[in-house]
Design a protein around this nucleic acid. Structure first.
Lengths: 143, 143
DNA sequence: CTTTTTGCAAATGATTTGCATTAAC
DNA sequence: GTTAATGCAAATCATTTGCAAAAAG
């Protein structure tokens, strides 16, 4: 069956001159269903369960494509692997230095000053990433 | 000769129960002289020029130690290698998606809301990293 | 049919680790 | 003298690349 989200993805792909493949549809569904940031590895595992044979290079290439299309945001939260976040509205992340956990922070961050400074330097700002690091609740309790 | 900065480093190291080594002194001087973020590789190259034989694993270990002591901040600006910044006061960075250049943005960012959200989640926030991405002046002009 | 996309295997490159040696204290 | 710190070589691991086969338009 084809969902409305599938149609939207197909439209976005065609509009940008890309082909609609089952790999892209599955990856997009996995991201949507997940609704949360995840590493390429996690996304690949979940996707391979739905589309056996799906390869990691394809996962990376597709995530990069999705990022260019504005469908996911790559988040570098300090851990060894990058995270890919289907929540594209601007939101901050908290990264625990002890256990590496990353959680969403639903709070507005006014980075207008930084964007203005970037423009003043002649640059064209597109995205602002805010990562708060520290110790998460679990690590403060346990340890 | 021993500078005032050397003395300060030695004091900070001893206070934390660490030894004062020539490698640590040299790396600290290189960071101070540089005054700007740089990759471990760059820092190692510059440092090896002053202390032949200095190894990369030592550079990484020392930078990690300095980070724990609050003497440098590790900045993950999306590129393949992490950057280490001797400017420890809070400041944002701009990362160019085309050429990978990273520049300092001297503009205040109010991340109070994000920190409050982290505390509300039971976490203990310590550092806030703000990275603005886009196209730098050179890439906008050239290309 | 033509061109993009995929999967596979192998390469890359930053960072880390194990371990014997050296240097701080 | 003890113990932490270093250097070396090798390992790890996320990510990328080259290329032939498969699939989309």
């Amino acid at each position: 069956m084809t969902t409305a989200a599938d149609e939207r993805l197909a439209g976005a792909l065609r509009a940008a001159g890309h082909r609609v493949t089952s790999q892209r549809l599955v990856l997009h569904r996995v991201l949507t269903d997940l609704g949360r940031h995840a590493s390429a590895e996690e996304i690949a595992r979940e996707s391979a369960a739905r589309l056996p044979g799906l390869s990691l290079p394809t996962v990376y290439a597709t995530l990069e494509l999705f990022e260019r299309l504005g469908l996911v945001r790559r988040v570098d939260a300090g851990g060894p692997a990058a995270l890919f976040d289907p929540r594209t509205e601007s939101h901050a992340h908290f990264a625990c230095r002890c256990c590496g956990a990353v959680l969403d922070l639903d709070a507005p961050v006014d980075a207008g000053g930084a964007e203005a400074a970037a423009r003043a330097a002649g640059a064209e700002p597109a995205v602002v990433d805010v990562v708060v690091s520290g110790r998460c609740a679990a690590c403060r309790a346990g340890d």
